[in-house]
Design a protein around this nucleic acid. Structure first.
Length: 458
RNA sequence: GUGGUUUUAGCUCAGUUGGUUAGAGCGCCUGAUUGUGGUUCAGGAGGUCGUGGGUUCGAGCCCCAUAUUCCACCCCA
């Protein structure tokens, strides 16, 4: 028989008990805040129809979709003529009609449209589930990772943006991570595009200036001139986006520069509202205006957010979101605007791990007592003990196999970080007691079950 | 999708210009301790060197392919 070396697919990971405990700590922190702000949970399938997913994330996004091969005789429609290199897309279409979800926002939009009659709008939902992208793995990037999303649909109000920003602030405060929350507005970007070269160049400009942090002005202008932007257009672009100073001054000067664009002015107005309102209700949250923030996903239309950790080596964003006006429209439900944010669980985990910000009590085992014994008779006696403790809610377990060496059993308790061992032998049975051993203090006491419960309860 | 990088014992890694039976630390098992762990001491087990080809008298080491790790670009949580 050939031995097979076990392995898991590229970019996926197993999580041991300790890792799961830490991940749950993050999930719980996020979930509590979501609930506090009035969001309700939903879950959607791992697989969606490809027709639901394609075309929502731009060309790059479509390439990163994991596709699921059709069941049954998936080749029955495929003739040799179809199966040529130039027909790859058509072939894919014929043999695969499902794909793994790429994010939580698009499945949510699909859910809203399908359940529009049952939903009370505005609908505030949260969703914490894995998503998949066929990307090359690297630092902070996995092929399977979890997103934690909160979205509001069916409301145009900027109060939603305000709530979501506060959720970001509150969660990261709870986790003890210093972050920068950046905000911009797609309408401002549209206005900039309009003024610089024309509204149809929004996507190009957005993608280029998004890299400003990374490759600098020089890199961006190089990239734009390669894309047929004139020197005049490029310099006017930089004049607009590199506006410096206080938030109010920045917005004021932008206003004058975008005077000819009604959309741009609308974006500035929205941004001003969010900033001013936040200033009034919660001064402790600091938002940073960043006109170079663009965000790739093509469905955003209004405010956009991005969160990055201020400490640590992970430079990529650990959260992002924004307003999308037309997402449900694609599925046949117009006039429903939505806004949402996303937390990247795995990247947040990496940051907390690097900065050692996980609390000490996020350990794997919560067992308080391990029952140890020597033979069949004391096993039966220990079984009574473990049952009694469990009946009063004390997490305990019994070493399942009869081994002569008690040391082996104690060693097991040490490895699992179990603080107490209850030893049962002939002496203990005779006295109807257990030897309760404190494994951290190296002390032991002969106690009845009642006394043991009393001792362990606090 | 592009470029680079990694893979040797359960884990972390050595392995000289290609040359006999491939090493260390930690962990594991056994004993000192026939009812008591975390320390110490003594002994022991464990590897078809990621996989498949090739060059060579001879390959852990050179060549090709493939998988995988990590990293950068693209893009993104």
């Amino acid at each position: 028989m050939a031995k097979e070396k076990p392995s898991i697919p590229k970019g996926t990971r197993d999580f041991g008990p300790q890792e799961v405990a830490k991940r749950k700590y993050i999930l719980n922190t996020i979930e509590k805040v979501f609930i506090k702000y009035g969001f309700m949970p939903i879950e959607t399938p791992s697989m969606e129809n490809l027709s639901t997913l394609t075309g929502k994330y731009g060309d790059e996004g479509d390439k990163l979709l994991f596709k699921v091969l059709n069941s049954g005789d998936y080749l029955k429609e495929i003739t040799p003529e179809i199966l040529t290199a130039s027909n790859q897309q058509l072939t894919t279409k014929l043999i695969s009609e499902k794909g793994l979800r790429y994010d939580l926002t698009v499945p949510f939009a699909r859910y809203v449209v399908m359940n529009r009659n049952e939903i009370a709008f505005p609908f505030k939902r949260y969703q914490m589930q894995p998503v998949w992208r066929a990307d090359r793995p690297q630092k902070g990037r996995y092929r399977e990772f979890w997103q934690c999303d909160a979205d509001v649909v069916g409301s145009d109000s900027l109060l939603n943006e305000l709530d979501l920003i506060q959720i970001y602030a509150e969660v990261f405060k709870g986790l003890g991570v210093q972050v920068e929350i950046k905000i911009n507005n797609r309408k401002i970007l549209a206005g900039i595009a309009e003024v610089v070269k024309g509204a149809e160049h929004l996507q190009t400009i957005a993608v280029a200036i998004d890299k400003l942090d990374k490759i600098g002005e020089e890199g961006v202008s190089k990239e734009l001139s390669a894309l047929d932007f004139s020197d005049i257009e490029i310099s006017s672009l930089f004049e607009i986006i590199t506006t410096k100073g206080e938030d109010k001054e920045m917005l004021q000067s932008l206003k004058s520069k975008l005077q000819s664009s009604t959309e741009g002015l609308k974006g500035i107005e929205e941004l001003e509202f969010v900033l001013n309102s936040l200033q009034q209700i919660n001064k402790s949250v600091s938002l940073k205006i960043d006109f170079s923030l663009a965000r790739g996903l093509s469905y955003y239309t209004g405010c956009i957010f991005e969160v990055a950790a201020l400490e640590g080596t992970l430079k990529s964003s650990i959260g992002g979101g924004g307003r999308y006006d037309n997402l449900t429209g694609i599925f046949g439900l117009d006039g429903v605007s939505g806004v949402g944010i996303s937390f990247g669980l795995d990247r947040i985990y990496d940051v907390l791990e690097e900065l050692k910000l996980f609390p000490d009590d996020t350990q794997g085992s919560h067992t308080k007592v391990l029952f140890c014994y020597f033979d069949e008779a004391s096993q039966a006696y220990a079984l009574q003990g473990v049952t009694a403790l469990r009946n009063v809610g004390i997490a305990s377990q019994i070493y399942p196999d009869v081994v002569k060496k008690i040391g082996k059993q104690l060693d097991f308790a040490n490895k699992l970080n179990i603080p107490f061992a209850a030893v049962a032998g002939t002496d203990e049975i005779a006295q109807q007691k257990f030897m309760l051993k404190d494994l951290n203090e190296s002390k032991q006491e002969l106690l009845s079950i009642e006394e043991m419960i009393e001792r362990l309860k606090n």
